[in-house]
């Protein structure tokens, strides 16, 4: 491994450590001992099979959204819309599962997975189309479409598919054939085959991007639209395809959350998985392996901070957002890590 590659891996790691340290220092303000907070965090994330299972459970949607952002990024697009895509994808899985509750179990999860991918994909293709054909920027469009997706999901849930047995804003439960089994090894944590699906998806994304012609063309468009055109690649088509794939990947969040977890679509179930996906992709350098690793880190943060409410006096799980934010800032702030001494050393040579 050459030095450049080593630095490429090392730098985000250093950034993560710095970001986390800054976040833990913040807890000093609340009169907590950062070391104590850290130990609660670690114990809560990795302390038992159950805890680790929960970490993986939280990591699952982040792998999907991270891959979603990464694929779009390789096509030169910023997918801020994973939140809306995953909302509608999950809703689609839940609605299918509730409406055709009698579907046999050998086919039901597959159908629901496809539905989640398809609906997420369509929702993702919209900003792709808008960018490709109307020239309007996907960042703003995806943000706007997040709100629109929220509105649609809320309307459909409350007006069409509402679970009348509870007061909660959620859809009717899915049929038993749709549920995918959770892994007993993790002592009751809802980690299921959805996690395996996430890992497989990461592998598939890697193969697609680096071994196939469409993947190459997608990355070429992301690098240079002009050069891609000269190579007889249609950037419009590629952009729409990329955003459709990105949307579909985000939609797969529904598999773990609906089929493997709650068994229904709950309004507002996602604690910003879509936005955290941006951080996951960034930290993972948009490489599938990196995305998986980063997703597990953020899953651990999410799980780890969950117990802070009980174990500390002033620090609540909201600190999770602070930690994540600081990690993102440190990772993205490239200029912060132009190590001066390193440059000096090279200058001397």
């Amino acid at each position: 491994m050459n030095r450049g590659r080593l630095l490429e891996i090392l730098r985000p790691l250093v950034a993560v450590v710095i970001g986390l340290s800054l976040g833990l220092l913040v807890t000093l303000v609340a009169g907590e001992n950062p070391i104590h907070v850290l130990s609660v965090l670690l114990k809560s994330a990795f302390g038992s099979r159950y805890d680790f299972g929960m970490t993986l459970y939280y990591a699952t949607p982040l792998i999907f959204t991270g891959l979603s952002v990464a694929v779009a990024f390789h096509a030169g697009l910023f997918n801020i819309g994973a939140e809306g895509q995953l909302t509608l994808g999950a809703l689609a899985a839940a609605v299918l599962g509730a409406s055709f509750a009698g579907t046999p179990s050998w086919i039901a999860p597959i159908l629901a997975t496809l539905a989640a991918f398809l609906i997420g994909g369509i929702w993702g293709a919209i900003p792709g189309w808008l960018r490709a054909k109307r020239g309007s920027h996907e960042v703003i469009n995806t943000i706007m479409l997040n709100f629109i997706a929220g509105g649609i999901a809320s309307y459909l849930t409350l007006y069409w598919f509402r679970n009348l047995e509870t007061q909660n804003p959620e859809t009717r439960p899915i049929g038993p054939g749709f549920a995918i089994s959770q892994w007993a090894f993790f002592g009751g944590a809802p980690v299921s085959w959805a996690f395996a699906l996430a890992l497989l998806t990461a592998l598939a994304v890697w193969v697609f991007l680096w071994k196939t012609v469409p993947g190459y063309e997608l990355r070429a468009v992301g690098q240079s639209e002009g050069a891609a055109r000269v190579a007889r690649i249609d950037p419009a088509k590629v952009r729409i395809l990329a955003m459709a794939i990105a949307g579909g990947l985000a939609g797969l969040v529904g598999v773990g959350e609906v089929l493997g977890g709650a068994g229904k679509f709950k309004l507002g179930f996602s604690p910003d998985y879509g936005f955290i996906g941006i951080a996951v992709a960034l930290l993972g350098r948009n490489r599938p392996v990196g995305v998986v690793a980063a997703a597990i880190l953020f899953g651990a943060l999410h799980k780890g901070t969950a117990d802070l409410d009980l174990e500390t006096e002033h620090v609540t799980r909201d600190i999770s957002l602070v930690l994540q934010a600081l990690v993102i800032l440190c990772v993205s702030a490239e200029g912060l890590f132009h190590l001066r001494w390193l440059r000096k050393k090279r200058a001397a040579q």
Binding site: V26, V29, A30, G31, F78, I80, V139, D272, F275, I278, A279, L282, H314, V315, T316, D318, I319, S320, L321, V322, L323, Q324, A325, L326, I328, L329, S332, A333, E334, G335, L336
Partner: peptide, 27 residues
């Protein structure tokens, strides 16, 4: 100054605000 991507950093600032406010409120 530090060349962070503006969209990524902006998202992070939003998360920071979302996390910091309840944190301080709790204190």
């Amino acid at each position: 100054n530090w060349k962070a991507d503006q969209i990524v950093a902006g998202t992070a600032i939003n998360m920071l605000a979302l996390g910091m406010v309840p944190f301080i409120s709790k204190i």
